[in-house]
Design a protein around this nucleic acid. Sequence first.
DNA 1: ACCTGAACACCGTTCAAGT
DNA 2: ACCTGAACACCGTTCAAGT
Lengths: 177, 177
Amino acid sequence: MKVTRAQIVDGAYELLRERGLSSLSMRRLAQDLGVQPGALYYHVANKQELLAVVAARVLADFPASPADPRSAAQDLRAALLRVRDGAEVVSFVQAYRPDVLTPTGALNRLFTDRFGPRQAEWAARTIVHYVLGFVAEEQNRAELVRAGIVDVEPAHERESAEAFLFGVDAILTGLAG
Amino acid sequence: MKVTRAQIVDGAYELLRERGLSSLSMRRLAQDLGVQPGALYYHVANKQELLAVVAARVLADFPASPADPRSAAQDLRAALLRVRDGAEVVSFVQAYRPDVLTPTGALNRLFTDRFGPRQAEWAARTIVHYVLGFVAEEQNRAELVRAGIVDVEPAHERESAEAFLFGVDAILTGLAG
DNA sequence: ACCTGAACACCGTTCAAGT
DNA sequence: ACCTGAACACCGTTCAAGT
C-alpha cells in the first residue's frame, strides 16, 4: 500500500471533522488509510505538524479579507463549528504556529487604521481569544453530551449566537471607545 | 502501601504545578505515591473527576468576592499562572463542571446591578473566555519553549500584563457603554 | 523511495484475587 | 476496606529490514 501526504492530511481532516479529536490518532489514521503506523512518518514529521496542517484547513473557508470585525468574528465561529473540536485544535496550533492563524492577521489589518501596530495586534488577539474560548466551550459541551457524560440540553443555536454576539459587540464597542 | 483521597489530590496538584499537564498521568501519580495504578480508582472515579478537583484547587486563591471586574480578571490570571497549564486544565473542566468555576459566579455577581441575569451571565463569560484564552496561549508558549520546540523568547511579564489589560479594559469599556 | 514488522516506552481503566 | 497483579485496549515514535 502507498499513501501520499495529501491523502494523510485529507484523512486526518475527515477523521477530525466527523469523529473528533479523541479519534484522531496516528494509528487509527494509518488503519483508515490501509497502511502501517510507521509509514505516516515518512510523509509527516509528527502528529503536531499534521495537526498544524489540519488546523489550517479548518480555517480555510474563513475569508482572507473580511469586511469588518463583527462579521469576521462570526465567520471565524462558523468555520470552527464546521469541524468537531475545531476550536481546540486551532487553539493548540495557535501556540506554536501563530503564522497558521490567518484570522489574527486578517483582524489585525482591520484595526490598523484605528490603532498603532502594537494595539492593533492586541485588539485582534482579544477577539480571537474570545471566539476560541467561546466556541471551545460550545464544542466541549457538545462532545460531553454525545458521550453521555453530561445530559444538559445544549443551548439552541439561536441563544448561542445571541450570547456570542453580546460578547463580540461588547469587545468591539470597547475597542471603538 | 495506603493512600487517601487527599494525598491523591495533593499529589496530582503538585505534579501539575511543577511538571505540567503532560506529566500528570494516573500511572505516574500512582508511582509517586508508591502505589499501583489501580489503587487510585478506589478513591477517585476517573481522571476527569480528579482533574475537576485539581482545577478547583487552582482557583482556590481566587478571591470569592472580588471588588471589581478589572481586579477580578487580574486575580484570575494570577491564579492560573501559578500552576503549569493552569488555564488549560480549568478550560477543560469548565465544560463539564461549570459549578467548579467560581470566577464566573463571582464576576456574574459584579454585573447583576448593571444587567439582567441573562446578560450578567454573558458578561461574566465574556471576561472568563478572554482570560482563559489569553493565559492558555501564554502557558502553551511557555511549555513549548521549555520543550525546545519553539525558541522565541517569551514576552516579558511587563508587556504581557499590558497586552492583557488592554483586552480587559476594552471588554469592560464595551460592557459599560 | 517508501513501506512493513516489530519493538520501545508509555497511556486509562477494570477486576479477580489477596490481605 | 483497600491494595496488588495482571490484563485489555489503546497511544506516538523509531528503525532495521525488506521491496
